[in-house]
Design a protein around this nucleic acid. Structure first.
Lengths: 344, 344
DNA sequence: ATGAAAGCGCTAACAA
DNA sequence: TTGTTAGCGCTTTCAT
């Protein structure tokens, strides 16, 4: 089947000539556009197959679509994101769209560059997972290219949104721990530098949800938040700090599984046992949380479903850019495993 | 700073007009091409900044380069690949190139489609991580676009290669286990369907390296390979099978950490302890292997360095397509942790 | 239903 | 050193 490397790529002109039709006709058949007879479609398709023609996305992009969807992932090492991505690719599998990932961008500046680069490449639509750019910038971007924002609680007329209800998620954890008898429950948070999006970021909402739930249980005085990052290192240093408290917390709620893992490292290093000496809970229910050696209690936010919804909304918006924006909020559930137990 | 969404994108023509020069001049400045005076460069740069101009990759791709490098990753959920990717992006950080990831392609057909899609998008170069396509197809692809193959032991005149010495890696594990006193050492492998690349695939080489090392130690009779896949599930089912042997192995060497994790699940489920009842070793030294709850003995193959070398070779080949092909083979090292110990 | 022709934004011969 | 101009491969009016 493998053809020898051609000197020149097969173009729409070659196909047209081979099929004895105009390039317009080929283009129309390619896009299932209006105004092609079945007979012509047949001939064109045959010619395409004969010649092994593939449209050039670059050339297409100059006039029409590129059939490319870009997904920006903040941290590819965080095992939650592959889940979301799987949902996106699943949903796009049987379409003409190809998914391309723009990897890891630390910082607002790098993020802006990454988004620019997707626009420069004429992507038909982009999905931004947990972007940290200021709200205004996201609106600006969404004005240029169909955009779906994932994991940020921002209602906008220009972009669609998919998120998990982080307030509920945080409450699930606190309720669970309180139900087990814990009172000194600490939280490891991810900081927010950009003031304009404090209220939109999942990390901030989880932290706030934690505070709300604590107060609801009359534990306002026990609120204890360390702000590091949602990374292994962040969880590690955060937990270390918590373990040096004069009165140690009996439970740690990390805002992300990956941070919870780091926390478990710190707890182990301190010679303490989980859940005997201290309970640990995470957020995201990543594949590694289910892993027997870890068995981490965690909030499941259905990453795959988030991806599916994001892709669905994006396709809808690419199809109709004037469409009313949609917001999808998914309800998280708690998966109780063995890192949480009643305190001593 | 954020400009309102423009109706029309700023083009090279706008820049040229604003700077009072020709579009050629702008184009040349953009590419640091020969034949531009410092004065002109200045004016053009100023105009670019004034107008917030960004070149369209699609238009560029039609004539010249797109400044885009594609990386195909076989399984984005495998925590080894982010390491490689980090190396690639590091190396490309200060260049004009943007890295785009083509995610997870299960099967030869999907892989071929993914590669095609990168070619269709006029990428300037591609890095294929552990591709499963037949050798001839890779050569074909490399004839069309500069290509670096990662993790496949295939010497070719048309593409460059970066790989880890898997024979050595497998031997490191076996030597270590034998040194601890193990004799019944089993291996969990990843199958190879395509006969044309049996000798090139890292999974096959690891399995063969295991066999060689076993024989070298006079343990040819103890060779025991189960072939599943390099996934959590693969490791799980593989280990389950091994645990039902009339005489159980005292050690399991999984060809990938992710499979070793699945194996640990199966061992735990069977009520056995690690390393008391059975030792487990992996391959890749992924971040999770170092995790305290896992502490998996594993072969480190310097994923980041692999990525750096791959990107370096790709840039070199993009710069000179006629260049002699290079092969880089990195030596793995063994990281001993707590999942391996002398047998009972 | 079909095709001719004008671009899309850029690069690269070639002229000046 | 600088500018003119002809495409790159495709989509899209607008005729026919």
């Amino acid at each position: 089947m493998t053809r020898p490397a051609q000197r020149r790529r097969v173009t729409i002109v070659d196909v047209a000539r081979h099929a004895q039709v105009s390039t317009t006709a080929v283009s129309k058949v390619l896009r299932n556009a209006y105004g092609t007879s079945p007979a012509m479609r047949d001939r064109v398709h045959r010619a395409i197959a004969d010649l092994g023609y593939r449209p050039s996305a670059a050339a297409r992009g100059l006039r029409g679509q590129t059939y490319t969807v870009g997904v920006m992932v903040p941290d590819i090492a965080n095992p939650f994101f592959p889940e979301v991505l799987a949902g996106v690719t699943d949903q796009l599998r049987d379409t003409d769209y190809q998914v391309l990932l723009a990897p890891g961008c630390a910082g607002e500046k790098a993020e802006a560059r990454t988004i620019e680069s997707m626009i420069d490449r004429s992507m038909d639509g982009i999905i931004l997972i947990a972007p940290i750019s200021p709200r205004a910038h996201l609106e600006h971007v969404a004005g240029i290219v169909p955009t779906v924002i994932v994991g940020r609680h921002a209602r906008s007329a220009t972009f669609d949104m998919v998120a998990d209800d982080d307030t509920v998620g945080a409450a699930l954890v606190v309720d669970h721990l309180v139900g087990l008898g814990h009172r000194r429950i600490a939280h490891i948070a991810h900081p927010e530098t950009e003031p304009s999006c404090v209220e939109e970021m999942p990390n901030m909402i989880r932290a706030e949800g934690y505070r709300l739930a604590m107060r609801r249980h009359g534990l306002g005085d026990e609120i204890d938040v360390v702000s590091t990052t949602y990374t292994r290192e962040g969880g590690y240093t955060g937990a270390r700090e918590l373990l040096t408290r004069p009165v140690r917390p009996t439970a740690i709620f990390a805002g992300a599984d990956i941070a919870a893992m780091g926390a478990l490292d710190a707890v182990a290093e301190a010679g303490l046992s989980v859940p005997g000496d201290i309970s640990v809970a995470g957020y995201d229910n990543t594949p590694f949380a289910a892993f027997s050696q870890v068995s981490l209690t965690s909030v499941d936010q259905a990453g795959r479903q988030i991806g599916v919804d994001a892709a669905r909304l994006l396709l809808a918006r690419i199809g109709d850019r004037g469409r009313r924006s949609a917001q999808v909020t998914l309800s998280p559930t708690l998966v109780v495993r063995t890192t949480t137990a009643p305190p001593r």
